[in-house]
Measured scan of single mutants.
Amino acid sequence: EIEQGFLPKGWEVRHAPNGRPFFIDHNTKTTTWEDPRLKIPAHLRG
């Protein structure tokens, strides 16, 4: 299961009806299937 707590500020994870997680960026009011944490360099992750 995906943990909400480690998402960047302003992001939220939800699950589509088929169970697939998607990510909501409230900063830009966009959604994506890609986990935003995967784009953060390892040394900047919490």
Rank of each mutant, 00 (worst) to 15 (best):
T28A: 06
G19A: 03
F22M: 07
T32F: 04
V13L: 11
L38S: 13
F23N: 02
F6Y: 14
R37V: 04
K39W: 08
F22D: 07
G10I: 00
W33A: 07
R45Q: 11
R20M: 13
E3P: 09
T31S: 14
N18D: 11
P8K: 15
N27A: 08
G5F: 10
R20H: 13
T28W: 00
Q4A: 11
I40S: 14
W33L: 06
E34V: 10
P41E: 10
L44E: 12
H43V: 13
N27D: 11
R45M: 09
L38R: 14
T31F: 06
V13F: 10
Q4Y: 13
T28P: 02
F22T: 05
H26K: 07
E34F: 05
R14K: 15
W33K: 05
N27G: 06
I24Y: 15
G46C: 10
F6K: 15
D25V: 00
F6W: 13
N27M: 06
N27T: 12
G5Y: 14
P36A: 03
W33P: 04
G46D: 12
T31Y: 05
G5L: 09
H43F: 09
R14P: 06
P36F: 00
D25F: 00
R20C: 08
I24W: 07
P8A: 02
T32I: 05
G10R: 03
R45F: 10
W11V: 06
G46A: 09
N18M: 01
E34L: 10
L7W: 04
E3A: 09
L38F: 09
W11A: 02
I40M: 13
W11K: 06
P36D: 01
I2L: 15
K29G: 14
I40T: 14
R37E: 02
K9Q: 12
N18L: 03
I40P: 07
H15R: 14
T28Q: 05
L7H: 04
D35C: 05
H15T: 13
P41F: 04
F23E: 04
T28F: 02
R45C: 14
P41C: 08
H43S: 14
E12N: 00
L44S: 14
E12C: 02
T31K: 04
E1D: 09
H26P: 09
K39L: 11
T30N: 04
G5D: 15
I40K: 15
I40H: 10
R37C: 04
F23M: 02
A16M: 09
H15Y: 11
I40Q: 15
D35E: 02
F23A: 06
P17Y: 03
P21R: 11
G19E: 03
K39F: 06
R37P: 01
F23V: 03
L7M: 10
I2N: 14
H26I: 12
E12G: 01
F22Q: 09
I2Y: 07
N27F: 10
L38H: 08
T31H: 04
N27Y: 04
F22V: 09
H26C: 06
R37N: 02
A16I: 10
R20E: 13
W11T: 02
I40D: 10
H26N: 05
P41I: 14
F6I: 15
F23P: 02
L44P: 15
L38T: 14
